[in-house]
């Protein structure tokens, strides 16, 4: 499950997602935002992540949708008044602004779903460790403890039920108290054992000198090329943004959207940036499919033969 965009060096993936988040927050233009939203959604589908997308969608739509509703209710700027609601003017601009903000939030959410899938904890920690080794070590240790503690907590819950300490029964007060007792047992046990963890760290020379970092990721030529492409495209977009491209003005009145040469360059740069992983993912998909087809045809002709015949006779 490590093909396509997931196989790139963590720094490439991080640059991509950092760029997407930055652009989602900087570029205030429906064309850009919708492009980004679609690109990430397609990337997720290509990576086979449609299910988490669907599962989170109702919550995200609710969060983002509420922004679209709240903005016109509370913001009354704008020159096109559509109607009055509870004596408050509802303007076209406010509705459009709310919708734009909704798209921004949706984009942020979806970028994070894709981020969670592509930049696994390992990769994040690898990058994090480069910037802040001690904090990263601390976080890694906590990450290692979480599944261990969950298992312990399960055992504790099972056993303490024998002596009547049970979150499942009794009134709210008792249940909350029992829950905390369970956590206290976990805490005592774990802190006791952690002394041994500290000993084993010390026994292996922790704290003697500056730690080095072992990496399982290698920055290959493809990664360097990708970094360069993403950086160049990203800078084009940022340059364009500083020039005033990639944003529309809604307040105080909507300005007609113009699409000149500068805007086009900026947008093309943005598309290249957003779509690069899609190209990687799609190419890999296509390669696998074609190689699979070749294998079936050449290596197992005898097996496929009768199968084809039977299907034909049907």
């Amino acid at each position: 499950m490590n093909g396509g965009f997931r196989s790139v060096h963590p720094s490439v993936a991080l640059l991509y997602y950092a760029g997407l988040l930055l652009f989602a927050m900087l570029l205030f233009h429906p064309l850009y935002l919708l492009t980004e939203l679609t690109a990430v959604a397609i990337l997720l589908l290509l990576q086979g992540q449609g299910r988490p997308l669907l599962r989170g969608l109702p919550f995200y739509l609710l969060m983002a949708g509420s922004v679209a509703v709240l903005n016109p209710l509370f913001s009354h700027r704008g020159s096109h008044i559509l109607f009055y609601f509870l004596d408050q003017p509802i303007t076209l601009e406010a509705i459009l602004y709310g919708l734009m903000m909704m798209v921004v939030l949706l984009t942020l959410f979806i970028v994070f779903i894709s981020y969670n899938y592509t930049v696994t904890t390992d990769k994040f920690m690898y990058l994090f460790a480069a910037a802040a080794p001690k904090s990263a070590l601390l976080t890694l240790m906590a990450i290692r403890f979480v599944p261990l503690f969950q298992r312990r907590l399960h055992q504790i819950t099972l056993i303490q039920r024998i002596r009547g300490i049970d979150v499942g029964t009794g009134n709210l007060r008792k249940r909350m108290r029992d829950g905390m007792t369970l956590l206290k047992v976990l805490l005592t046990w774990s802190l006791e054992e952690a002394l041994q963890t500290a000993d084993s760290m010390k026994a292996r020379g922790f704290g003697l000198r500056k730690r080095s970092a072992y990496a399982i990721y290698k920055l290959d030529r493809r990664d360097v090329a990708l970094l360069a492409i993403l950086a160049v495209c990203g800078l084009i977009v940022l340059g364009g943004w500083l020039q005033g491209y990639g944003k529309i003005e809604i307040y105080p009145r909507m300005k007609p959207v113009q699409f000149g040469g500068g805007e086009a360059t900026c947008f093309i740069g943005f598309c290249l940036f957003a779509l690069t992983p899609l190209w990687l993912e799609g190419r890999e998909k296509w390669l696998w499919r074609s190689s699979q087809r070749n294998v079936y045809l050449s290596a197992t002709p005898i097996k496929t033969g009768p199968h084809l015949m039977s299907s034909r006779s049907r």
Partner: peptide, 12 residues
């Protein structure tokens, strides 16, 4: 040491 779980520091 004695306890296999308590000596491990990292997650992988």
């Amino acid at each position: 040491f004695q306890n296999p779980d308590a000596q491990i520091v990292m997650d992988t």
